[in-house]
């Protein structure tokens, strides 16, 4: 059984964390002159989130599915839950095909060291929503 009961939960928690991500000063500085638009395609449950870094906006669901992107990141929703808490090693997950990264990868990989503050933001969102069961030890 999945960690999330449906796509709306994914958007409410991970989508909200991404909204914080695009205005995080370190991300803004790193992406302001680029074209990095990441489409996060999740499975079980199926969900799509578009993170437009230069535009500092996040789209969820159907609006995200058809929108153009420069990088596509695929993973299960459970692994997304772990990843955004800093509990999934990105390089190892790629080697084990738990994550698939396609498109222009250099800018996206360059953002990995900046993800630390997002982990805390995501966990706070989960805690505020009373979903401490999703927080990974």
């Amino acid at each position: 059984m999945s960690t999330f009961k449906d796509a709306d939960e994914v958007y409410a928690y991970i989508g909200k964390a991404m909204e914080a991500c695009v205005v995080e000063p370190a991300f803004v500085e790193a992406t302001k002159d680029g074209s990095l638009v990441v489409k996060i395609i999740q499975t079980a449950p199926d969900a799509t989130i578009l993170v437009d870094f230069p535009g500092q906006k996040v789209l969820c669901g159907d609006a995200a599915v058809d929108a153009p992107s420069t990088v596509q990141l695929r993973m299960s929703s459970d692994n997304a839950n772990r990843f955004w808490q800093g509990k999934l090693n990105f390089t190892l997950a790629m080697a084990q095909r738990k994550i698939k990264l396609e498109g222009k990868r250099s800018t996206a990989l360059g953002l990995l060291p900046l993800t630390g503050p997002i982990f805390d933001t995501y966990k706070t969102i989960l805690a505020d929503a009373g979903r401490t069961d999703l927080i990974v030890d």
Partner: peptide, 11 residues
């Protein structure tokens, strides 16, 4: 920067 066009796993 042409390596950006290669699949990341194969870089």
């Amino acid at each position: 920067g042409y390596d950006d066009n290669w699949p990341v796993e194969l870089r």
